[in-house]
Structure formats: C-alpha cells, structure tokens
C-alpha cells in the first residue's frame, strides 16, 4: 500500500521535472522579452508530434527525438520572434495576448490539418518497461523523460551562467536599457530567448510523447500547466520553475491518490491560488516588479 503510494508520488515528481522544462521555456521568454507566450502549450504539442513520428517512423527513442524537436522548435521560435512578435514588443499586454492566441490557433489548426483529430499513442514494449530503484519500480518512459528534462534544464542553467551569450541574455533580462547602452544586440537576444523557450517546449513535448497520447487540442492544457508551474515558482526564475514543476507534479499525484484523479488539476490550481495570495511574485520571484 505504502509502496504503491510512493510509486505514484515518484511518478508525479518525474512528470514534474518535465513540467519544469516547459516552465523554464516560458520563464526565459518572459524574463528576456517581457512577453507572455500564450501559445506555449501548442509548442509542446508540436514537440509531441515530432516525438511520436520520430518513434513510429524512425524508431528513435524519446531523448534523441527531443534533440531533433529542440533544434526544429528553436528555429521556429527564433523566426517567429524575428518575423512577427518583434513588431508587437511595445504594444499593450492585451494586444500581445490576442497575438499569441492567434499563433496558438494557427498551430492547432496546422496540427489538425496535417495529422487529423485522432490521438496518436506511442506503442511497443518500451511503454510497459519499468526500472527498479530500490523498493520503487518506475515507468521507463517517465524516467527517460525526467532524465532528459533534467539534463536540458542543467545545460540551460550552465549556458546562462557561463556562456557569454547566456550572460548577455541575463543582462538583457535584468536591465534592457542598460544592455542597449553597453551595445548588446537586444533584438537578437530576444529572438534567441524566443528560440530557447520554444526549444524547451518542443523538447519537453518529445520527451512526454510516450507518456501521454498526442492530440491537437492538448495545447491549452499545457499552457495552463506552464503558467501554474511558473507562477508558483516565480515568473522569470529558473530555480523557481524547477521547484514549481516538481510541486505541481507532486500535487497532481497526491490529489489523484487522496481524492480523485479527476480533481488533480483543481489541486494544482488550488496551489497556484495559495501561492498567488501568499506570495504574489512566486516562491522564487523578485520582490519588486
């Protein structure tokens, strides 16, 4: 009894690490561009399709598919920023909101037009495989997804800390005017941030494609999960996204255990409300906006 509980909770933590990767993408885009990407979930779904087809057509495992998805979605995010979003950077928030709703609708529509409305499920022996870790037995696909997500988050943190470009990105997030003054190419940095954000979403999608069935309409759900993750942790903070993601994964798993699997999303929204009210800028957010 206790063991099966622990198994479910561990499964929640594993999915939570993938949520953290999704949230990291959203948080980097917001931190650098000051734009809320309401199409983030749709980008996750795009990654899920890539993961599904990489597996079913090429036989690639999810971590390899995630690399492909990251590269493709990076290009998508970079171009999206350069060709479209850049022109809306100075516009009010509600206008940017409509812009991203439009982008989300186009992505969903493309998925529907190309892949049809049916769910695509990765099948094969890998979906049943488990790994024993001490007394726990974990789904291989979840361990794989969490491992891949953890590696990507870690490399993102190292990039932002150590690489000159990453440091420039943090500078642009901290002080836009100041970084313009010292000669940083801020529009290019924004486009890079947009690319990295989309790459995080795409890679996360590819990683979870063996866990959840891929459908065109999942986008909104993932967008909301990304928001909850990021707000709980603090918008603009990577450490916050990690903690937020794991907390949401845990909250969902424990809600499914204690009450009813149907109510798991209500639990994570409850957590969000609690955090918003007690600490409006999130657990790791800066105190002054």
């Amino acid at each position: 009894m206790l063991l099966s509980w622990l198994n479910i909770l561990a499964g929640g933590v594993l999915i939570g690490i993938v949520y953290a990767l999704i949230g990291s993408g959203l948080t980097i885009m917001f931190g650098v561009m000051r734009v809320v990407n309401f199409a983030h979930g749709e980008m996750v779904v795009a990654g899920m399709y890539m993961g599904y087809f990489a597996h079913s057509l090429l036989g690639l495992p999810a971590p390899l598919a995630a690399i492909i998805a990251a590269v493709v979605m990076f290009a998508f995010g970079y171009l999206l920023q350069r060709l479209l979003v850049e022109k809306f950077m100075a516009r009010p928030q509600h206008i940017q909101f409509i812009l991203f709703i439009g982008i989300a609708l186009v992505i969903t529509g493309l998925h529907l037009a190309i892949f049809g409305p049916d769910a695509h499920a990765v099948d094969g022996p890998i979906t049943f495989a488990t790994i024993s870790l001490g007394p726990l037995s974990l789904d291989l696909v979840r361990v794989q997804a969490a491992g891949g997500a953890a590696v990507l988050i870690l490399s993102l943190v190292l990039f932002l800390r150590l690489a000159p470009l990453g440091q420039a990105m943090r500078a642009a997030a901290d002080n836009r005017t100041g970084s313009l003054v010292i000669g940083l190419n801020v529009p290019r940095i924004c486009a890079l941030a947009s690319g990295i954000g989309a790459a995080c979403a795409g890679a996360a999608g590819a990683l979870i494609s063996p866990v959840f069935d891929t459908e065109p309409y999942l986008g909104l759900e993932f967008t909301l999960i990304a928001f909850v993750t990021v707000i709980v942790g603090g918008l603009g903070s990577l450490a916050g996204a990690l903690v937020g993601g794991v907390l949401i994964g845990l909250a969902e798993a424990s809600a499914a255990l204690a009450i009813d699997p149907q109510l798991k999303t209500a639990f994570s929204y409850g957590l969000l409300l609690l955090v918003l009210l007690l600490r409006p800028r999130g657990l790791f957010g800066a105190d002054a906006g």
Binding site: I95, L99, G102, L105, V106, T108, G109
Partner: peptide, 22 residues
C-alpha cells in the same frame, strides 16, 4: 474538407487585424 482550416483562418485573421489596427 480540411479539418483545422477554420482555426488557421481565424488565427491568421486575428493576427492580421491587431497588426494592422493598433
């Protein structure tokens, strides 16, 4: 006869309208 065309069209129209009419 293509599912998804409606949301592509609607989405593009939204982007176009807010792009052209600030």
């Amino acid at each position: 006869g293509i599912s998804g065309m409606n949301s592509i069209g609607y989405g593009l129209a939204l982007i176009l309208l807010i792009g052209l009419l600030p």
